[in-house]
């Protein structure tokens, strides 16, 4: 497709070629000298950092003592439009915890990364992180259990991400 019919009619295709080459060479020099930022990166060695609002792989946050924050209220499972969160709750012997998940699974292949689970959570137990590298062979590899979600090595070396949002108020006032 000829973008500029007028230019082509007056100067012929040879001049057009040179105009194009000039842009190419100029951009190449600019890129090589670092005067302009390159769009591409050397992916496996370099990583692209998305903004904090990027919705990547999920993480379950933990309390200061390292246990899951999740109370298995199932609001995330309720709101999930892809129906990819499966929680089995059970009684916890500690009366201050009362209810905790024995199984928390997310089927990543079904997940649409909408972030509704994050918004539905009343206790900041689930977050979507910036992790975007996901690969797997069998379907099983795409189902994350609660251990992987909370304690995978990427998260503070397996200790998990500690969240204390509202804890101060909640514990002090039990609001």
């Amino acid at each position: 497709m000829i973008l500029n019919k007028e230019l082509y009619r007056h100067h012929g295709h040879l001049k057009g070629l040179f105009i194009a080459l000039r842009i190419t060479i100029k951009t190449m020099i600019m890129n090589l000298t670092g005067m302009e930022k390159r769009m591409t990166i050397n992916y496996p060695e370099e990583k692209y950092f998305y903004s904090d609002r990027f919705k990547g792989r999920h993480v379950l946050t933990v309390k200061e003592d390292g246990t899951l924050r999740c109370t298995s209220c199932m609001l995330c499972a309720t709101y999930c439009p892809a129906d990819c969160i499966h929680i089995i709750a059970s009684n916890n012997d500690d009366p201050s915890v009362e209810k905790a998940p024995v199984s928390f699974e997310i089927e990543l292949l079904r997940c649409v990364f909408c972030g509704f689970c994050e918004e539905a959570c009343p206790v900041d137990a689930i977050r979507l992180t910036g992790e975007y590298e996901m690969a797997g062979h069998s379907e099983q590899e795409w189902v994350m259990d609660q251990h992987y979600l909370a304690y995978r090595p990427l998260l503070s070396g397996g200790k998990g991400i500690v969240s204390t949002v509202d804890d101060h108020n909640r514990l002090k006032l039990r609001l």
């Binding site: 298995s72 209220c73 009362e98 209810k99 609001l175």
Partner: peptide
């Protein structure tokens, strides 16, 4: 009321 609806079965 403790407002513990997340862990309350009545919710």
């Amino acid at each position: 009321h403790p407002l513990d609806c997340p862990i309350c079965d009545q919710a």
